[in-house]
C-alpha cells in the first residue's frame, strides 16, 4: 500500500532535501486537514494554527520519517492529536465555554457552496438550513464519533486508516461510524419534527 502512495514518495523526497515536495503535500492536504480540524475545534483561527503546527511536526520529523502507513493517515493523526491537546487546553482555560459554534467567520466567504443543477431558491434555502443543522448536530457528537464519521464519509478514509488515526481497532471504527450516523439521523429527524411543529 505504501509504495503506491504518491504522498509517501513526496515525503521521502522531502526527507531527502526536496523542499518543494513539502509544498506539494501542503497543497494537497492543507484544505482537507483544515476542514477536519475545524470540525474538531470549531474555531477557524485555531484550526489554521493547528494546520501550521501539523506541518511543522511533519517538517520536524522528516529525517526520521519511515513510511508505515499512508501519508494522509499519519498527517491526520498528528492533526487530531494536536487538536485534542488544544481542546484539552481550551477546556482547562474556559471550561464554561461551549465549542458548538464557529462564530468568527469573516462574513465574506459563503459558509457553503452547494453543488446543484439550478435548484429553486426555496430548495437551496432548505438545504442550507438542513446542512447548518447537521453542522450543529455534528458538533454535539462525541469527538471520536465525529472524527470517525468525518474521515469515513467526507475524507473517504478506509476503516483501517481511521483506526490508525484514532488509534483503535477497525471494529471500533465501524461501530463509531454507525453510531455517529444513527445519532445524526435521529437528531436531524427530531429537529425537522420540531421545526414542523413550530410551523403549525
Amino acid at each position: 500500500m505504501q509504495n503506491g502512495d504518491p504522498d509517501i514518495r513526496l515525503m521521502l523526497a522531502f526527507r531527502d532535501g526536496d523542499q518543494a515536495a513539502l509544498s506539494d503535500l501542503y497543497g494537497k492536504w492543507a484544505g482537507p486537514l483544515l476542514r477536519y480540524l475545524e470540525r474538531m475545534v470549531r474555531e477557524r483561527a485555531t484550526a489554521e494554527e493547528l494546520v501550521q503546527e501539523t506541518f511543522i511536526r511533519v517538517h520536524g520529523a522528516r529525517e526520521r520519517y519511515s513510511p508505515e502507513a499512508r501519508f494522509s493517515t499519519w498527517l491526520f493523526r498528528i492533526g487530531r492529536n494536536l487538536a485534542l491537546n488544544e481542546l484539552d487546553r481550551a477546556h482547562r482555560r474556559m471550561p464554561h465555554l461551549s465549542t458548538d459554534r464557529m462564530d468568527d467567520r469573516d462574513g465574506k466567504t459563503p459558509v457553503l457552496t452547494l453543488v446543484s443543477d439550478r435548484p429553486s431558491a426555496l430548495s437551496v434555502l432548505e438545504t442550507r438550513r438542513a446542512v447548518s443543522r447537521l453542522d450543529a448536530e455534528l458538533s454535539e457528537l462525541p469527538e471520536r464519533q465525529r472524527s470517525a464519521l468525518w474521515l469515513a464519509a467526507v475524507e473517504g478514509h478506509s476503516y483501517e486508516e481511521i483506526a490508525e488515526v484514532l488509534e483503535t481497532s477497525v471494529a471500533s471504527v465501524k461501530s463509531l461510524v454507525h453510531r455517529a450516523r444513527a445519532n445524526l439521523a435521529d437528531r436531524m429527524v427530531a429537529s425537522s419534527d420540531a421545526i414542523a411543529e413550530g410551523g403549525r
Binding site: S23, Y26, A30, G31, L34, R35, E48, V51, Q52, F55, I56, T109, P110, V111, L112, T113, L114, V115, T127, A130, V131, L134, D135, L138, L149, W150, A153, V154, R181, L184, A185, M188
Partner: peptide, 25 residues
C-alpha cells in the same frame, strides 16, 4: 446525513486562506 455531510465538505476554503496559512507556516 451523508448528503448533508458532503455539502458541508463543499464549504469553501479560499485559496487566500490556504496561502495565508502557508505563509505563516
Amino acid at each position: 446525513v451523508d448528503h448533508h455531510l458532503e455539502a458541508l465538505a463543499e464549504e469553501s476554503i479560499s485559496e487566500e486562506r490556504l496561502a495565508s496559512t502557508l505563509a505563516n507556516l
